[in-house]
Amino acid sequence: MAEFAVVEPGSVDEVLDLLARHGEEAKPVAGGTWLALVLRQGLLWSSLLVSLRRVPGLAGIAVDEAGNLRLGAMVRLRSVETSALVWERLPVVAETYREVANVRVRYQATVGGNLCDADYASDPPALLAALGARVVAVSQRGRREIPVRDFVVGHYQTVLEPDELVTEVVVPALPPGAGAVYLKYRTRSHEDRPCLGVAAVVVPDGSGRLARAEVVVGAVAERPQRLAEVLDAVVGRALDDATIGEIAERYAAEIEPLSDLRGSAWYRTEMIRVFVERALRAARARAQREGRRT
């Protein structure tokens, strides 16, 4: 393994200063579950690892005045999974983080790190994209919010600039009466990464029709797959089995999946059809329960 220095700055400003001065040579380290792996294998080179472990203010879970759930970049996946606040406000978020890897990894890996390593075979990005979540990135040049949907651009590649640090993820509240679900499909062991994962959100308009549907399929291509045209086309339609079947059919037909040890491209296409349908039905059932409650 190549030589590198490790620094542990005590504030976000110090981190931003280091990133601005060292550019691509510096890499922020959150939980380090992915970074340690690729550093040890010699696949990633960095002369300066900037540990975020002593930086205050990055590990909070809160709900802001607008009702958004705000997850700090250094929040451990396990903390999301066990947060009473998350279970109360957006249970689907806790459910999804609970599905990642195993409990040892979840105690170490972080919300921000998971998004930034941009591995295609991951669970949270698809859900966060379906919920319309935004990544908050800061640098000495300013602050910007990037929709999770646009965050990953390729294998292990995000839109972040080398001087930017992710500080939190903002997840908007679901509209009243909406149902949301994440279905993870594993083909090997229980701790495995997904063969595919489907996040589905349905928002009924009060008369049994769709005000909006969101479907994002993860782990089947280099970035989460969302078919805007399909989702726009079903607005105003009845939320019945025919509509659900049509969305599933089009997702299966239009996504070009990759092949890996967890499933061939052909197999993934078949499973996209099955799991998009199941996810939408489950989301509809949740929306119906919500509708009865309100």
């Binding site: 691509e24 890499k27 690729v38 696949l43 990633l44 292990y156 590649q157």
Partner: peptide, 12 residues
């Protein structure tokens, strides 16, 4: 010859 493979931040 030499070939550099680049995948996001990863290099070989």
């Amino acid at each position: 010859g030499r070939i550099q493979v680049k995948i996001g931040p990863l290099r070989a």
